[in-house]
Design a protein around this nucleic acid. Structure first.
Length: 562
RNA sequence: UGGGGCGUAGCCAAGCGGUAAGGCAUCGGCCUUUGGAGCCGACAUGCGCAGGUUCGAAUCCUGCCGCCCCAGCCA
């Protein structure tokens, strides 16, 4: 027995099964998986789990993983989706090399396989309508009844089936069904449909076919043709495994093992392609790649990295228990990755003016700032400091509570990489809104000077009023208000749980260096969060920033609690 | 009420007859020119429940209970 397998670092019920197969030699030590998306929507974080699992297992065992589009239903599928799916998998960091397949590649072989079952008396052409088939199927507790066409002669089945393919009959007139057992307690075994007549233009085969195989008939045989050893799918297909096995056994072809695991669910997210499609079609979001979407393309546009998504997929585990992962884990994974990589810059999201009354007018002093304290190789940069500055409105309080470490009348605060300042006067407009804070600065406390080591309550980020530039900043919050968006009060649908404040657009002031920010560059706006340039709305010279995720904010948590 | 699965901490998840890993979250403390990061510590006498087998049970047996999936010519 060849045993090229290595030992995977993670143990779960799937790797245990594979290890057992390797021990007994069931597949000669070979491990070959596949990721089989249907091109009827964009990939989401749940697919990412499956992609990481399938490609990951193949890599761990020095095997292969194919990409195979499960394109057996032309009515719902489109090339737009196959293109996006390929882009997303590549972006995640996986490579299927030349093994890009389509179930439609096998239509001819599948047809020949079907012919064999017909000749063997194991499949028949049925004339029952969809509704009649349902009636004959029986129920969960009652057995079904045989179709009156079940015992049609082989020759007649052959003739009818060939004419089905030839296009002699209208849509829905006949079906080809497997002849298994209408009395089976497993409804999937009650003479399942293998082919339906359907005139629809297929994105790959065009109008070459008017009969299309069903999932059950196409999937296992496609796996078999490709020499797949472990066909990993989600829990709801567990009931289909006996049928999967029946087809390959009765055809006498290579028999892959189907293994089912629990799909990923994440709090505050919906994973249903149907529902995501609705959000797109009803313009509730800005396309499949809206940064609030759980799609791979949405997460990418939001600023998530492939590394963080792969890490997340590793951490959620693989099991058969249906579970819902706390979105905090996903956020933890991006923060961890971004903390190590993001360039620190200063941006004031909700500016209020600060005037340093004792700082010379017209003077621009360059302050040296660290680009990434986690990465010395990221270097330093110069940030202009002037008499008039902006700080975050929420960093000042006229009448602060006890633990407020920021600016307040008569209090001192440090400006990051600059001086310690003291608030001397609050200027308000007629409506009582604060329009300006007049402060003094201590010239002996510039960063690097001995006096700068003085203990002060807090450190604020800032931006020069004259040297900074304006930029649009988009803050995102969860798309839904409930942990489980499908849980609604009185028969309403999931849209009732939409968060009306999931997108907030601000006009912020940012460091001058940011005018030329490019999509793909990862930033941390100090004290605020991680941001990246939006790939759709950002233009050279006028960047639009998306907030990927906020920084952990213990102050916010403290204030919410009290 | 047929069949197929699943129950280990707030959320995930190891465990595979020898006395409950790890992560997230949470709570303390240290440190800090990001209330970030980092560091230290706490967090299941308990594994859905009840019996049984055993020197010993989350692991084996029996019986209950709870949750999920299946009646598309969708995947």
């Amino acid at each position: 027995m060849a045993s090229p397998e290595s030992t995977p670092q993670t143990s779960n019920f799937i790797t245990q099964l594979i290890d057992e197969h390797n021990r007994t030699g069931r597949y000669e030590g070979r491990v070959h998986t596949r990721f089989p998306p249907e091109p009827n929507g964009y990939l989401h974080i749940g697919h990412a789990k499956s992609i990481c699992l399938n490609f990951g297992i193949a890599a761990d065992y020095r095997g292969l993983c194919n990409l195979r589009f499960d394109d057996t239903n032309p009515a719902k599928e489109d090339v737009e989706y196959v293109d996006s799916i390929k882009e997303d998998i590549r972006w995640l960091g996986f490579d299927w090399e030349e093994r890009e397949f389509y179930a439609s590649d096998y239509f001819e072989t599948l047809y020949e396989y079907a012919l064999k079952l017909v000749r063997d008396g194991k499949a028949f052409v049925c004339e029952l309508t969809a509704e009649q088939i349902r009636e004959h199927r029986g129920t969960l507790t009652e057995p079904g009844r045989n179709s009156p066409f079940r015992d049609r002669a082989v020759e007649e089945n052959l003739d009818l089936f060939e004419r089905m393919r030839a296009g002699e009959f209208p849509d829905g007139r006949y079906t080809l069904r497997a002849k298994i057992d209408m009395g089976s307690p497993n409804l999937n075994m009650r003479d399942p449909v293998m082919y339906r007549i359907l005139r629809a233009h297929h994105h790959r085969t065009g109008d070459a076919w008017c009969i299309y195989p069903t999932y059950d008939w196409a999937h296992g045989q496609s796996d078999s043709i490709e020499g797949i050893t472990h066909s990993i799918c989600t829990l709801e297909f567990e009931d289909h495994r006996p049928l999967y096995d029946w087809f390959v056994e009765n055809l006498g072809i290579h028999h892959p093992r189907q293994i089912e695991f629990a799909r990923l669910n994440v709090t505050y997210m919906i994973m249903s392609k149907r529902k995501l499609l609705r959000l797109v079609q009803e313009n509730i979001v800005d396309g499949w790649d809206d940064p609030r979407m759980p799609t791979i393309s949405g997460l990418r546009r939001r600023g998530y990295t492939p590394e963080s998504i792969r890490d997340f997929a590793d951490r959620v585990g693989v099991a058969k228990k249906e579970s819902t992962i706390d979105i905090a884990l996903l956020e933890h994974c991006v923060r961890e990755d971004l903390n190590a990589r993001a360039l620190r810059v200063m941006a004031v999201l909700d500016p209020v003016k600060v005037v340093l009354t004792n700082f010379p007018e017209g003077q621009v002093e360059m302050m040296e700032a660290v680009n990434n304290p986690e990465d010395p190789t990221a270097g330093m940069r110069q940030v202009p400091f002037t008499r008039e500055l902006y700080i975050e409105r929420e960093d000042f309080m006229e009448d602060p509570p006890g633990k407020f470490f920021r600016l307040a009348p008569g209090r001192e605060v440090r400006l990051r990489y600059a001086y310690i300042i003291k608030c001397e006067e609050v200027v308000k407009d007629n409506a009582g809104n604060i329009v300006e804070l007049r402060c003094s600065y201590d010239p002996q406390t510039r960063s690097g000077m001995p006096e700068a080591n003085r203990k002060v309550k807090g450190t604020l980020h800032w931006v020069s009023a004259s040297e900074s530039v304006e930029a649009e900043v988009r803050l995102y919050d969860r798309l839904f208000l409930r942990e489980d968006p499908d849980e609604t009060d009185n028969g309403e649908d999931f849209l009732a749980n939409l968060n009306p404040d999931s997108l907030q657009i601000l006009r912020a002031r940012v460091e001058p260096s940011l005018v030329d920010a490019l999509p793909g560059t990862l930033y941390q706006f100090e004290r605020k969060g991680y941001f990246t340039v939006d790939s759709r709305y950002g233009r050279p010279g006028t960047p639009v920033f998306n907030r990927t995720v906020s920084l952990r904010d213990t102050w916010a948590r403290m204030s919410t609690k009290s």
